[in-house]
Nucleic acid binder design. Structure first.
Length: 481
RNA sequence: CGGGACGUGGCGCAGCCCGGUAGCGCACCUGAAUGGGGUUCAGGGGGUCGCGGGUUCAAAUCCCGCCGUCCCGACCA
């Protein structure tokens, strides 16, 4: 993509399409540091809008933001056996600083459970201190060999919620609540339908009792884990001595949860809604929701048209619409259209001399379709248009997911599906690690989740798709990112 | 870490086999005309040819070494 011509179509090479769509929209760029990317203003604006929306949801559910150190003493990570086993291979460690060897190496956080719960131990004395509901927005580092813009990079941005509760039921309630908040955000803001459920023992977070996940289906029919929420049980509490005095006067360990979503969501958004022209932003998260392109020939027309465009923009801004006007000279309207389409702007308003005379603007949806909107009452009409685009994106994505979901698949069908077109496959599962491993070996597909009730098939499968033993739960398989 | 390809203006490439001092498209800058789906013409700026060594009168081109990137196989939001 050197000349601004079309990008690789999704159907011919999805990975190439993804990279080109991201680059064309100027969301990110490769950096001089291996495995690390630069998030450019367009991409960061998208992330900021995601952050703001999520942050509001976290605050509304009683969480408060805090910030913990980037560096974690190596010994902290070691205290929880499963946790260190899970992360040790991926950590970057500082051994030298200030011109000399450190007494104790400092791990650059791959996640912050250890240092946060070490602090919780100081802050929590009594059941009256519970629940403690904390969130932090931060960067983390996980050394990766194979990286993809937004989807997997060595350093990424995320939020990690960390909470402490007096009993298991309250922790479980919290973990499920946050999963629900993630789901709501993904559907209502990102227009991305997800399947929620619990991870199998083999797929859960290192150190967790249970891990819940939101799984989206991308346009190449591969699954993307978009957000996770963990009930950590008392594992970390015991490792870090997070104890409290109960109502009855006994000492007990707290129950923790942690939950996170990352800049990976930007990648998810691209792969959910993008088309062969480039990315498509759902209006609620679009940094620019509407762009006004004025069209003129003569100077007289230019003055008239710009006047109408400027007035419209002011009214739209007043109505809370994020709108820009593209009055650049020396560029044809068509060239502007392509540029804004590549950025995924959901609505374009064309205002030319004919429109000004007719008292209207031509509105073109990024998702297709043009219509004339009267300049009188334009803001209200634009808001309606944006809502329609938002709704349409979710509907299209949901229909696509349903079209690539199969239920009650048998062994041969599972293999054929995963080796072929991909998608979500629902089937019975005995719960055995051997079957899970064998299926992964044979099909490269993993159990994404044991779906929550509302996603399960009307009649529960009786037998395991692989070994034929009685099924313990319905599982959903897919090849994943 | 094992297998394959590639490093030449900002991006994409040609030139290399058969050595002679670097070219094309896009992008960028200036000017004019254009302007309802990538506008045209004219002019212009920009390159230690990944790095180091060797062969040669002469190296992007041949030889040796190194570095880096990308694609494919084991772990991960």
């Amino acid at each position: 993509m050197s000349d601004g011509a079309g990008i690789t179509p999704r159907a011919s090479d999805f990975s190439a399409w993804y990279n080109e769509a991201v680059m064309r929209a100027e969301l990110a760029d490769y950096s001089p540091v291996r495995g690390c990317m630069v998030i450019r203003p367009n991409g960061y604006a998208l992330w900021e809008l995601m952050q703001r929306s999520l942050d509001d949801l976290f605050k509304a559910s009683g969480h408060r933001n805090a910030y913990f150190p980037l560096f974690i003493p190596e010994s902290f990570l070691r205290r929880e056996a499963e946790h260190v086993k899970g992360f040790a291979p991926q950590t970057a460690v500082v051994t030298r600083a200030g011109g000399k060897e450190l007494d104790e190496p400092l791990v650059i956080r791959p996640t912050s459970e250890t240092i946060i719960y070490a602090m919780f131990a100081k802050w929590i004395q009594s059941y009256r201190d519970l629940p403690l509901l904390i969130n932090q927005w931060a960067n983390v580092v996980r050394w990766e060999l194979r990286t993809r813009l937004f989807l997997r990079t060595t350093e990424f941005l995320w939020q990690e919620g960390h909470t402490a509760h007096a009993d298991e039921a309250d922790a479980e309630r919290e973990a499920r609540q946050m999963l629900g908040i993630y789901r709501r955000f993904m559907e209502e803001w990102m227009a991305m339908p997800v399947v929620t459920g619990i991870k199998t023992a083999g797929e859960k977070f290192a150190g967790a009792l249970r891990t819940y996940s939101c799984e989206g289906l991308m346009q190449d029919n591969r699954a993307l884990q978009a957000g996770t929420s963990h009930n950590l049980g008392q594992n970390f509490a015991k490792a870090f001595g997070v104890q409290f005095q109960t109502v009855a006067g006994d000492l007990d360990y707290v129950w923790n949860t942690s939950w996170g979503v990352s800049t990976r969501l930007v990648g998810a958004l691209v792969m959910t809604h993008g088309d062969d022209v480039g990315i498509v932003c759902p209006p609620r998260l679009a940094p620019v929701q509407a762009v006004v392109v004025p069209i003129w020939r003569s100077d007289a027309e230019r003055a008239r048209v710009l006047e109408a465009a400027t007035r419209s923009v002011a009214l739209l801004r007043e109505a809370g619409v994020r709108v820009e006007v593209d009055a650049r000279d020396g560029m044809t309207p068509g060239a502007k259209y392509y540029e804004w389409e590549g950025r995924g702007v959901p609505l374009r308003l064309e205002i030319g001399p004919r429109d000004v005379s007719a008292g209207q603007a031509m509105a073109a949806r990024r998702t297709g379709g043009k219509s004339a909107l009267p300049l009188d009452g334009l803001a209200q009409r634009v808001v309606v248009e944006l809502e329609a685009v938002q709704r349409g994106l979710l509907e299209t994505a949901r229909a696509r997911r349903e079209a690539h979901t199969r239920r009650g698949v048998g062994r041969d069908e599972l293999v054929a599906m995963m080796e072929g077109e991909g998608g979500f496959a629902y089937a019975g599962f005995c719960g055995g690690a051997e079957c899970e491993a064998a299926i992964k070996e044979r099909t490269k597909a993993a159990v994404r989740v044991l779906p929550d009730e509302e996603f399960r098939s009307p009649s529960a499968p009786a037998r395991c798709v692989w070994c034929g033993a009685p099924s313990s739960a319905e599982a959903m398989w897919a090849r994943a990112y």
